[in-house]
């Protein structure tokens, strides 16, 4: 199939592994899905410490279920990317470990306190879910199928995140103050989740033409702001002075994009942001530390006695 045919046919779930697709399409889809898969993994590692740091048994259980889900989403997505025939799952995981694999800006920033958790678990996950819902209509069928399962599960993540925020914002004054501080620190990064405006976006045109992307960065950011700015305010969070955000006469929220630090964004995007390098290296060490598990699984050795192995339920 040539690229013009791909553009003509491009529609929801249009292409599958049985189609003979041009390399340009397969590379663009691989880049997009690999980025998404890497982000699931890096997000899970960012939240993992909070299984231990959670303030109650309920939160601990929910965080452990959530981290498990995110790692699962990463695996689903590596499979959807692998079927494109450009990169293997091993290559993608190795690239993530050696700093070549790209992933979402928000997951380059370390997270230290409990008050920061809803910034990821509510706002970033809410933003991600907005985007993922549109990707159920992407043109690469295995990607769309992965999104069906991801979106099914993700509602729990977002509501759990909102529940943490609701608890913190009805807690002690000190808790509310610390949550506000976390919000001010994370808000600009959250806005940048959707990337630069469409005229600065590098990959959008082609991805949209071949049906991989279903909505532009601007449309997604707008939908996110309209839903989540009122939510933040209802919980008593105040938007920081910068970036300047105002409401148009039609009720829609608009951000002054030039108020955002795009130099930092692109440094982050290129994996050159120092704290982000720490996150990448931390995950690389974790991957290395469990190499013996992979070796044991791949070796022919079978247990000699005892109960048959069973997955955790």
């Amino acid at each position: 199939m040539d690229i013009e045919t791909v553009k003509e046919r491009a529609g929801p779930r249009e292409f599958n592994p049985a189609d003979d697709l041009p390399e340009e399409y397969r590379k663009a889809a691989t880049r997009m899905i690999e980025f998404h898969a890497n982000s699931e993994i890096m997000g899970a590692y960012l939240e993992r410490p909070f299984i231990r740091q959670a303030p109650s048994i309920d939160r601990k259980l929910a965080f452990s279920a959530k981290v498990q889900d995110e790692i699962g989403h990463g695996q689903l997505l590596y499979r959807a990317a692998e079927t494109l025939g450009i990169k293997t799952r091993e290559e993608m995981l190795d690239d993530l470990a050696n700093g070549d694999g790209k992933f979402l800006n928000c997951f380059h920033y370390p997270m230290d306190s409990w008050e920061e958790t809803p910034m990821i678990a509510f706002f970033v996950d809410g933003a991600a879910m907005r985007r993922q819902a549109t990707l159920r209509r992407t043109s690469w069928e295995p990607y769309a199928h992965a999104m069906d399962k991801v979106c099914f599960e993700e509602g729990f993540h977002v509501k759990h995140g909102e529940d943490i925020l609701a608890t913190l914002m009805s807690g002690s004054r000190a808790e509310q103050r610390r949550t506000q501080e976390a919000f001010e620190e994370w808000w600009p990064r959250i806005i940048q989740f959707f990337g630069p405006t469409d005229d600065k976006s590098t990959h959008h045109d082609f991805a949209a033409d071949v049906g991989l992307k279903q909505m532009t960065n601007d449309e997604l950011r707008q939908a996110f702001l309209d839903m989540y700015v009122p939510k933040a305010r209802n919980y008593g969070l105040e938007l920081p002075d910068y970036p300047r955000v105002h409401q148009n006469d039609d009720g829609r929220w608009v951000v002054e994009e030039d108020d955002l630090d795009w130099d930092e964004f692109f440094t982050v995007a290129r994996n050159n942001y120092e704290p982000g390098i720490g996150q990448i290296d931390g995950r690389a060490r974790a991957q290395e530390a469990v190499e013996w598990v992979r070796d044991a699984i791949e070796s022919d050795a079978t247990p000699q006695s005892g109960k048959a192995p069973q997955a955790a339920d």
Binding site: Q132, E154, F156, V158, K159, K231
Partner: peptide, 14 residues
């Protein structure tokens, strides 16, 4: 998670 707040369309769907 019984939040009593309006949810985004995609969260409602999930």
């Amino acid at each position: 998670y019984n939040l009593q707040t309006r949810q985004a369309e995609e969260v409602e769907e999930s």
